[in-house]
């Protein structure tokens, strides 16, 4: 059976056209040489290629991606687990809800100095920042998904004798799956933000360190080249999670 609607691609024709248009405008603005802070797109591309060839980008991006995974994977696992538990158990929800909401909307970069005090100036701080940035949105989405489960589905399963474990695996978990995956997608984007923020604040490793360095030394084309690379990482992360969504939630 074919799905009712084809999944929407992350980048449709209009989206690609918009990106192409932006690059053209950027190139023109750069060629006008208004200020050194707007280098042309082609200069940035050349700088990007230079960073790729001398290994700077792969070194810094490699370090960044390791931190991203070290922060995001635990955030995904513990975030989903806590979200499921909070969705199912009222007491836990009542105890933690205010905290989760406060921390989700708090400016988490303010916590990075605390992390530095805890872990020292190391890439562990970056992984911890990634975790903090992505954890809460995953928790909240998972919890919302569980709580949105149709009551009649639960009643139906109980009427056939489903116990607590069967209800969880056969009803609550699959019912919450679309919300969980949405949470993971938003969490992946947040994780990239956390990665850059953490790296910029400790100024020692990864693409964030490069941003600070090129910014301070006025190597503007290189700065833009790293910014574009960060955007690419965010886009690829979100697209990967979305691919999982399409594979797992075929019934929507």
């Amino acid at each position: 059976m074919t799905p009712l609607t084809a999944p929407e691609p992350a980048f449709g024709r209009a989206g690609l056209a918009a990106v192409a248009g932006l690059i053209v405008v950027w190139e023109i603005l750069g060629r006008l040489q208004l200020t050194i802070f707007i280098p042309s797109a082609s200069t940035v591309a050349a700088a990007w290629w230079g960073l790729v060839r001398d290994g700077t980008l792969s070194r810094s991006a490699g370090s960044s991606l390791v931190s991203l995974l070290k922060g995001f994977v635990p955030a995904a696992i513990f975030g989903v687990a806590l979200g499921l538990a909070m969705g199912r158990f009222r007491t836990l929800r009542e105890v933690l809800d205010a905290w989760i909401n406060a921390l989700m909307s708090a400016p988490l970069s303010a916590l990075v100095p605390v992390l530095i005090a805890l872990f020292g100036v190391r890439d562990t701080v970056v992984a911890a920042t990634v975790f903090l940035f992505s954890f809460f949105v995953i928790v909240v989405n998972t919890m919302t998904g569980v709580r949105g489960t149709e009551r009649s589905l639960v009643e139906m399963a109980r009427s056939f004798g489903a116990g607590e474990a069967a209800l969880f695996t056969r009803i609550y978990l699959p019912a919450a799956l679309p919300a969980i995956l949405l949470g993971l997608r938003l969490g992946a984007v947040q994780a990239v933000k956390g990665m850059v923020v953490g790296e910029m604040l400790i100024s020692l490793v990864g693409m964030g360190e490069r941003l600070i360095y090129y910014g301070n030394t006025f190597l503007i084309p290189e700065l833009y080249a790293v910014i574009v690379s960060v955007l690419l990482v965010a886009l690829v992360s979100a697209t990967l999670v979305q691919a999982c969504e399409h594979a797992l939630v075929r019934w929507k």
């Binding site: 139906m156 056939f160 799956l177 019934w251």
Partner: peptide, 14 residues
């Protein structure tokens, strides 16, 4: 066995 007003079908199952 129960039959439900809103059918109570699992949307993720055939």
């Amino acid at each position: 066995s129960l039959v439900f007003q809103d059918f109570a079908l699992l949307p993720w199952a055939t």
